[in-house]
Design a protein around this nucleic acid. Structure first.
Lengths: 252, 252
DNA sequence: CGAACACTTGACAGCCCTCAACGTGAGTGG
DNA sequence: CCACTCACGTTGAGGGCTGTCAAGTGTTCG
């Protein structure tokens, strides 16, 4: 870890020494499809593996990068959860997103060559780090890689607008839980039982609500038989009803 | 115009016959820097001009593309204002953005090969249309073009998250006006006097407010000497105070 | 000139934020 | 093993912002 507590700019000690078999590493990764190696030939994969750096493990509270840091790389989450956030001048934290395994962070930093937000590990996190200049260069030789990068960035456009709507607290919370459930399911985890890796305050700052509201809504959901929650362990009991609540936010 | 009222999928009749001098067209465009031709050689510009199609003029109410249409092209606004929006199942319109000359639309459609929203002209609009497969192919030969596309997309990530609910109606309106003013100024228009090309209802659907609230806030701003507004003609009288109001939204 | 639409203005209610206090769980040291 | 601490989470009371409903005014266009 660098003196500033950030692992990205210089990733020396935090970089895993053992990359394993370069060719097999990503092929055996459960998230390779969602991540970066989708639809690429073995030869292309080799080129990609030459420039990937495996970073971690990072522990809860350690930062991947900080707002204002010079942009050097994007990264795919391999294990754990990364929270991206701003601190406004009132000291208020604004959470931009929670990033699960298979999801890519840092794409919003390309624009002005600086990370426009902070990224912190919420639990034990492992990352695959890609130097952006190098991957951009490679993308010129590999149409599939270029297309994949375009798609990844395109998908991120507008996702943040979902919870900015004037939906009720209930609807936003339902949408948050359903979204989490679906993303976890897409990665092979249970869509019904999972653990929240973030605090109530984090959720509140993400959904633009007061922490008290988050607490109250979750409690009410439990009373209404929608879910069972103890600390950060969630079991969704009535997915259809929760989805119905989330409908207006997810705009399906 | 096609039977569906959309000009994008088949742009035959709507495409301008006269492209002028291909090499000079974009060089003389006031927005070339903000748009696509920044930092490219003359040779590269020629290649780019071969695949650009000039679309328009479209008139107020005509659609550029509609939600669900197959994705074929991105487009830069050359004249006028384009509004992008969703219609949710309650029939409520959700405005995603207003796009001024020099700004690019359609980037959020790459992800799943369909436009995820509608795009409609608010006044008389002219566009530069770029076939996406072709421009992506060209980007493999032109590193600057690829980088520019990455930057354009990167910038759009997260802009929609600005007008969240935890800001007051006043702050959001101030941020909307300041943002408009700055974008117009960057394109050589007056930052103090301009015309709103969108209705109060459009603004309301963008800021996630009731139209009545938009009306009230604007009226109050006028009473407080912040601006003068008659119909859709705006004159900002006190930019510093308006900026101060917008601060918490623009998170500077 | 009339109709449709956009905009304004007023009254009222509801959602959620703020403030405040209390309960709970994990980690620590005696 | 227990008490302590501290962060996190829960629960309650009250008030303000803004959405909804309603009515009136102004503007544009056929």
């Amino acid at each position: 870890m660098t003196p500033s507590g950030v692992v990205f700019p210089r990733s020396g000690p935090a970089t895993m020494a053992d990359d394993g078999d370069a060719l097999k590493f990503c092929s055996t990764c459960a998230f390779s499809q969602a991540c970066l190696s989708e639809g690429m030939s073995k030869h292309a994969l080799m080129d990609l593996h030459v420039l990937v750096e495996h970073v971690g493990p990072l522990h809860a509270g350690e930062h991947v990068f900080r707002e204002g840091d010079p942009f050097t790389a994007i990264a795919a989450v391999r294990t754990g959860t990364v929270k991206t956030y701003h601190i406004d001048r009132d000291g208020h934290e604004q959470v931009l997103g929670f990033h699960l395994p298979g999801e890519v962070i840092g794409l919003n930093a390309i624009h002005d060559d600086r990370y426009p937000c902070n990224a912190v590990a919420l639990d034990t996190v492992m990352l695959c780090r890609f130097s952006f200049p190098k991957i951009a260069l490679l993308a010129q030789r590999l149409p599939n890689l270029q297309q994949h990068l375009f798609r990844l960035m395109s998908r991120d456009i507008g996702v943040a607008s979902m919870f900015a709507r004037d939906n009720t607290a209930d609807e936003r919370m339902a949408a948050f839980l359903i979204g989490l459930s679906r993303r976890l399911a897409a990665r092979g985890f249970s869509p019904r039982r999972f653990q929240l890796t973030m605090s109530r305050t984090d959720i509140a700052n993400y959904l633009r609500q007061a922490p008290e509201t988050v607490s109250r809504v979750l409690r009410r959901f439990e009373h209404e038989g929608l879910l069972h929650i103890k600390q950060r362990d969630v079991e969704i009991l009535d997915i259809p009803r929760l989805e119905a609540l989330a409908l207006s936010v997810l705009r399906e």
